[in-house]
């Protein structure tokens, strides 16, 4: 059971209030019709599955209904930051003390 900081409500909330929505920072191609099948297939189906840092989207479904991003360590399940939609992550690699 995660304890997740909602960047819109400004406080930690229980995981029950959230839905995970998969990998973050994937943009819908601006011109889908110009995509090859392979490019569209990449957008549709191919996702990172890192051991370690992962940027992912969550939605505060039973709360403010806002989508946001989280940077999570998939090994320790530690959430290193959450940030609003449209913002860039601050944590993009482990510091020595975070390495698990």
């Amino acid at each position: 059971m995660f304890y997740i900081y909602c960047p819109y409500c400004g406080e930690h909330r229980e995981e029950e209030e959230f839905h995970p929505k998969g990998q973050a920072h994937l943009s819908r191609p601006t011109d889908p019709d110009a995509c090859s099948d392979e490019e569209w297939g990449d957008y549709l189906y191919f996702r990172d599955n890192p051991r370690g840092l992962h940027h992912e989207i969550w939605v505060h479904a039973i709360g403010c209904r806002k989508f946001f991003n989280a940077t999570r360590d998939t090994q320790s399940y530690e959430i290193l930051e959450t940030y609003r939609m449209g913002d860039a992550p601050r944590v993009t690699h482990f510091t020595d003390t975070q390495k698990s």
Binding site: H19, R28, I57, V59, A61, R65, K66, F67, M85, G86
Partner: peptide, 13 residues
């Protein structure tokens, strides 16, 4: 509704 919000908030704000 979540689907609509997803597109509005993440793709077409």
């Amino acid at each position: 509704l979540e689907w609509l919000e997803f597109y509005h908030q993440t793709e077409w704000p």
